[in-house]
């Protein structure tokens, strides 16, 4: 019994220690914005890698999520005679939940893993020490441009995902399930508001911050050569994904307090 309590206590302390380190990295990014020169070239590179490079995966994920969800909702709603409400439900769900979470998970796998691996490799090959030895703070050079790039990119990627999810949903609903397009749009306009898309984009902003902090933290703390970089990369993806899912739960309630679902009709 004592052993179990001790193990639990150890795990809690480890988790708090980890959260403290990530928070410290966040503070350092804020400090870097204040005291360091802005690196436009690095920001440009990261915008291309994160924003432009994630287009395909985000579009495909958004479109197929929208299409599949439309099909599933239609199968159930058609039994109740509510086919025309399919569009509204799918689009609200896409905007508020599916697009932000799916995009967050996809960007973690594509971008977060790359960040952790690249920075981790720089750490174990002394390139980060080399940066420091040249009076360049690693956070200024490596983390801040990535953070700004992902904070710009994520809300836009989510808006893109929502758009393609809605296009796919409309295409499936109208062409395959023969739901009249007029009803589809009528219900969509009645039950969906711009705030729904805004909520998705706010979530994207938060998820982007989580991805960049977790992934860069893992990279900056990599050790033990190639094995350590591999472990750090895996942890970055795991922790980012879990953080996205957990934060999404709390964000849903928090944002619903400001923009309650259904308040507009």
């Amino acid at each position: 019994m004592t052993g179990a309590i001790r193990a639990l206590g150890h795990a809690v302390i480890q988790m708090l220690y980890y959260l403290g380190q990530v928070a410290q990295l966040f503070v350092e990014v804020l400090r870097s914005l204040r005291v360091s020169d802005f690196r436009y070239k690095q920001l440009g590179r990261q915008l291309v890698a994160i924003g432009f490079g994630s287009q395909l995966v985000v579009i495909v994920t958004g479109a197929f999520t929208g299409a599949v969800f439309t099909a599933q909702v239609y199968f159930k709603f058609s039994e109740l005679g509510l086919e025309s409400a399919v569009g509204a439900l799918v689009c609200v769900a896409m905007s508020r939940e599916l697009a932000p979470v799916m995009t967050g998970l996809m960007v973690t796998g594509r971008v977060g893993a790359a960040m952790a691996a690249e920075i981790g490799t720089m750490k174990v090959t002394e390139q980060i020490d080399a940066l420091r030895s040249m009076a360049v703070h690693p956070v200024d050079y490596l983390v801040t441009p990535r953070a700004i790039a992902i904070l710009i990119s994520m809300p836009l990627l989510i808006a893109e995902s929502i758009t393609f999810g809605m296009i796919a949903s409309w295409t499936i609903a109208v062409t395959l399930f023969k739901i009249p397009g007029t009803f589809y749009w009528e219900h969509l306009q009645t039950y969906m508001a711009l705030e729904d898309i805004g909520i998705g984009m706010i979530k994207g902003f938060v998820f982007g911050l989580l991805i960049v902090l977790v992934s860069c933290h893992q990279g900056l703390n990599a050790r033990d050569g190639a094995v350590g970089v591999g472990e750090g990369t895996t942890s970055a993806v795991q922790i980012s994904n879990l953080a996205i899912l957990i934060f999404n739960f709390f964000l849903t309630f928090l944002l619903n307090m400001f923009w309650p679902l259904g308040a507009q009709y």
Binding site: M122, T125, E126, Q127, D129, A130, R132, S133, M134, A135
Partner: peptide, 15 residues
Amino acid sequence: RKKVGILFQNGALFD
């Protein structure tokens, strides 16, 4: 650090 330079064992060039 601007006064002191270092040559690392493996060069530590930015790849």
